[in-house]
Design a protein around this nucleic acid. Structure first.
Length: 266
DNA sequence: AATGGGACCTGCGCGC
DNA sequence: TGCGCGCAGGTCCCAT
C-alpha cells in the first residue's frame, strides 16, 4: 500500500475501531509474517491486552498495548488491515473484546508483524529520515543538495525522508514541474522549496481523500480510497497530461516505474 | 559512500 | 483456452 497517506488513514481508522478494546484471541494462519518473537510469545504478549494507542511513523503502524509492548506492522506492498468480520484470506486475525475482528490481509506475504518492548530502537525506525511535515525548506535543501542520485529515487529513500513512496514521489515532482531524472544536487533552492511544498500538499491531499487504492489497498472498513482518481501522473502512461495535453511518459529509475510529463517537468 | 540489481512473494493482464 | 513473461504501492542484501 501503503505510503504515508494510506498508513495514516489506517491509523485513524484503528483509533476509531480498536482503541481501548482488548485482544481476546490471535489466529496466525501464516506464521512467516510474524517476524518476532516466535508465534507462541507473540500470541502470549497480545492476548488479554488492551489497545492503548495507535502511532504512525513513516509507513509503519505501531499499536501500543497496556503491557507497554508494541505491535509494529509494516504493510509493505500489498498489506492492509480490515476490521469487522473474520476474513477467510486473512494471514493473521486478532479477535477483540467486542466480538469483532481485525484482519491482517497480505496477498503477497511481504508485510511484517513484530511485537516488541519498544519501537524506537528497531533498526529500521532508528535510521529513518524526518517526516516531511517536520522539516522546513532550508532543512530539505540541505538534505537533498548533497546527493548525487536522481531526485525521484532519493525521495523514495526512507533514510533521507520518511513516508514517501512511488505514487506520491511522482505526483510531487509533477506538481513542482521537476524532471524525476534530475540529480538531486542540481535542484536550485527555489526548486527544492517548491518540491517540499508539493510533497506536503500531495501527502495531505492523500490523507484527506483516504489514500490511493491503485490495487489491493483498502481502509479499515474494506473500502477503497478516493485519491487514486486524483493522481496526475502515476499510472497514466500514454494518457494526456492534465496541464499540456501531451502523452505522459514512463521510464524506470532504480528499477521503479516512473511516470512524468517530459514537457511540463524540466 | 553510494548505487544498481536481485531477492522476497503472489496474482494479474498481456501477447502469442 | 493456455502459458510464459513482465509488472506491481517496499525494503533489504550484496557486489561493485
Amino acid at each position: 500500500m501503503p505510503e504515508l497517506p494510506e498508513v495514516e488513514t489506517v491509523r485513524r481508522g484503528l483509533e476509531k475501531s480498536i482503541l481501548n478494546k482488548k485482544i481476546t484471541e490471535v489466529i496466525i494462519k501464516r506464521k512467516n509474517v510474524v517476524k518476532e518473537p516466535g508465534v507462541g510469545q507473540f500470541k502470549k504478549g497480545l492476548i488479554g491486552k488492551k489497545v492503548k494507542g495507535i502511532i504512525r511513523r513513516a509507513k509503519l503502524i505501531i499499536i501500543k498495548l497496556e503491557n507497554n509492548k508494541y505491535l509494529i506492522i509494516h504493510l509493505r506492498i500489498a498489506g492492509w488491515l480490515e476490521y469487522g468480520k473474520q476474513m477467510e484470506k486473512a494471514r493473521v486475525v486478532f479477535k477483540l473484546s467486542n466480538e469483532k475482528y481485525l484482519n491482517y490481509m497480505d496477498q503477497r506475504l511481504l508485510g511484517e508483524l513484530r511485537l516488541r518492548n519498544s519501537y524506537e530502537d528497531l533498526n529500521f525506525i532508528k535510521t529513518l529520515g524526518p517526516e516531511p511535515f517536520d522539516i522546513n525548506s532550508k532543512q530539505f535543501q540541505e538534505i537533498i543538495t548533497k546527493r548525487k542520485t536522481n531526485i525521484k529515487t532519493l525521495l523514495l529513500n526512507q533514510k533521507v525522508i520518511a513516508g514517501i513512496g512511488n505514487i506520491y514521489a511522482q505526483e510531487a515532482l509533477f506538481l513542482s514541474g521537476i524532471d524525476p531524472q534530475r540529480p538531486a544536487y542540481s535542484l536550485s533552492n527555489k526548486e527544492a522549496g517548491s518540491l517540499l511544498k508539493k510533497i506536503i500538499l500531495v501527502l495531505k491531499e492523500g490523507i484527506k481523500y483516504g489514500g490511493s487504492s491503485v490495487d489491493t489497498y483498502r481502509n479499515i472498513e474494506g473500502s477503497k480510497g478516493g485519491m487514486e482518481k486524483r493522481l496526475k501522473v502515476y499510472g497514466r502512461e500514454n494518457e494526456p497530461c492534465f496541464s499540456c495535453g501531451k502523452a505522459i511518459a514512463k521510464i524506470a529509475l532504480a528499477g521503479r516505474g516512473t511516470c512524468f510529463c517530459a514537457y511540463c517537468q524540466k
